[in-house]
């Protein structure tokens, strides 16, 4: 303690005098000895990767080559996203809302900007065995963007009960995961409820597992 105090007392006038380099080295050495650093192995959120800027311009995104001059002619996403409704995942843009609000007018035809989509307003409810709310699949939002043949019959058989879907398959890029998790909104904690949107009936309790029902140590 005394040594540190004496170093600081010496360092202060020295700093004022302008020889900061000479004086700060012994002060730092004394400070490190007093408080050992926490190991990098024990930091918070070791596995939580957060991006500082979700929509960097192409020349800063790590995929485009900044040494390619044409990269700098590409539009930065933020310029296009100005005024569009935001979300917290994917492109950080709510594309469905942007379309519904008329803030973007993507063409339904390659050349004719007046052609309108064939929209089908039909919700499909899929009961979920576990405690998650049941899934409501809205055809409307999907047919605004896609044609029937994009999903039927290759990805989803258009028949009730013919499609086995589970979250593992979706995360691995099958079924809904052909688009969701690649281009349309991804699977994150914040987006679960977009599909799992129909609450279970009043008084519903999750089915007990066999391990609980037949527990020999009960």
């Amino acid at each position: 303690m005394n040594i540190t105090a004496r170093f600081t007392a010496l360092a202060l006038p020295a700093l004022l005098a302008g020889s900061a380099l000479l004086a700060s080295t012994p002060t730092l050495a004394a400070g490190a000895a007093a408080a050992p650093a926490v190991s990098d192995a024990n930091i918070f959120n070791r596995n939580l990767k957060k991006t500082a800027d979700p929509n960097p311009p192409p020349w800063e995104d790590g995929i485009h080559d900044p040494e390619n001059e044409a990269t700098h002619a590409l539009q930065p996403p933020k310029e296009a996203y100005a005024g569009l409704p935001t979300s917290t995942y994917g492109n950080h843009i709510d594309w469905v809302k942007a379309l519904d609000d008329g803030l973007i007018r993507p063409r339904w035809d390659r050349v004719n900007s007046n052609e309108e989509p064939f929209v089908m307003d039909l919700d499909i409810v899929r009961p979920v065995k576990a405690s998650m709310p049941d899934v409501v699949f809205p055809h409307r939002q999907h047919t605004e963007w896609l044609f029937c043949s994009n999903c039927h019959p290759a990805i989803f058989v258009p028949q009730k009960g013919a499609n086995q879907i589970n979250m593992s398959a979706i995360l691995l890029g099958q079924k809904c995961g052909v688009c969701h998790g690649k281009v349309s909104f991804p699977i994150t904690t914040a987006s679960c409820k977009k599909c799992h949107s129909k609450p279970k009936p009043e008084g519903w309790t999750p089915p007990l597992s066999d391990a609980t029902l037949k527990n020999p140590w009960k």
């Binding site: 296009a80 993507p106 063409r107 339904w108 035809d109 390659r110 963007w145």
Partner: peptide, 11 residues
Amino acid sequence: WFHRIRFRCKV
């Protein structure tokens, strides 16, 4: 992102 502002997936 750039293309979906101008075209629906269907195109």
